[in-house]
Design a protein around this nucleic acid. Structure first.
Lengths: 198, 198
DNA sequence: CAATAAGTACACAGACCAGTATACAATAAA
DNA sequence: TTTATTGTATACTGGTCTGTGTACTTATTG
């Protein structure tokens, strides 16, 4: 019972996530989600008291999914980096972004898109987006630990800015090399900072 | 007569632009635009055959306005740069972005936001956004002309990625130093490339 | 089996949406 | 002053949206 309840809820969130990502949040009606999921409207409103609550749930799910994808990508690409071994983690991060942004289903960053749809900075959606971006920066910092730099946070923010730029550029201008461009910049920054700190 | 017609039209586009920017395009109804502009609905539909046409007009207006703001900012900040004089233009570009992203009315890049609201790459809005971004890259290339580098276009794309990253980061995470971070990276890239080319 | 929980089907409310129809007023040029 | 243009006010159409109410069915659990 509890298992099936979870399953229905999960299924709704998963379906909504896909539609919100592909068609935008405001561009996706509740009825479309229900039709796609094959679930009754009442069931949705038994699990979520409003569309906003469903949106929040999809963003939380996307956050977990994205971080998992990112970490898997880093693991996958870390071994294939040339140059200093200490750089492998961060460089693999940009390869993971590259693989994502060049994939056929890519439609921008769900959090950037959501922020754009809800521009007000105090809106719950915007707050969640900011939180997600903070988690990404934290992860980049972890990837830079082996470098033993003096200013890991500052550099992590720089890489986050680079990554966001690559993602947005890839989406808006359909530029398939945006992430590799960002990676090249990251490599130069790493080299410079490594020289300074060692 | 023609003057007044233009004025009404202009006023509608200006009002719509502000509302679309602050509240999002899909978040702004036609009636809100009309109320804010103090114009009758019929007048709007005499000038534009649909909301989509109004959207297009606002984006075109925003493109002109933004490029003008950018160029004015570059003129303003170019003289205040330290270091190599050849770098002044590009560095001033990031100061202009900085001034914009830290202003109180800042609500992200209208084109990035619009792209997020209309994720489909073949949608007219998306196409216009891509065009705008191409114009920005072109302008950055012009700013780099005095540097006489071998690969001005590649570097301009790098700066564009940086700028997009700064804009998005500033908007989503309310980071008021995003543009200065991007500027620092740009300075390092300029220095490296200048050394190589000269 | 009985009782409780969860899901379904479907109609419907109330709000908002883009866009139209109509009749009238202001304007400005001829 | 006549005439064509432009704008206004307002009601309305048809559609979509989120969310609710209700009666019925299925599934689970004790």
């Amino acid at each position: 019972m509890t298992a099936k309840r979870k399953s229905k809820r999960e299924h709704l969130v998963e379906t909504a996530q896909q539609l919100f990502y592909r068609e935008g949040i405001k561009g996706t009606g509740i009825d479309t989600v229900l039709e796609q999921a094959g679930v009754a409207k009442r069931t949705l409103y038994n699990h979520f008291k409003s569309k906003d609550e469903l949106i929040i749930a999809t963003l939380q799910r996307r956050d977990e999914e994205f971080m998992a994808m990112l970490k898997a990508g880093v693991r996958k690409f870390a071994g294939r980096q040339q140059g200093a071994a200490e750089f492998a983690g961060v460089l693999a991060f940009f390869d993971a972004i590259d693989e994502w942004t060049t994939s056929s289903q890519f439609s921008g960053c769900m959090f950037i898109n959501a922020s754009a749809e809800y521009p007000r900075q105090d809106h719950p959606v915007h707050v969640i987006c900011a939180m997600h971006k903070r988690l990404v920066i934290q992860y980049i910092e972890e990837l830079m630990a082996p470098l033993k730099l003096e200013n890991p946070h500052e550099l992590a923010v720089q890489f986050a800015v680079l990554a966001d730029g690559a993602i947005v550029n890839a989406h808006t201008t359909s530029n398939s090399s945006a992430a590799q461009i960002a990676k090249q910049i990251a490599l130069q920054l790493l080299t410079l900072n490594y020289q300074v700190s060692h």
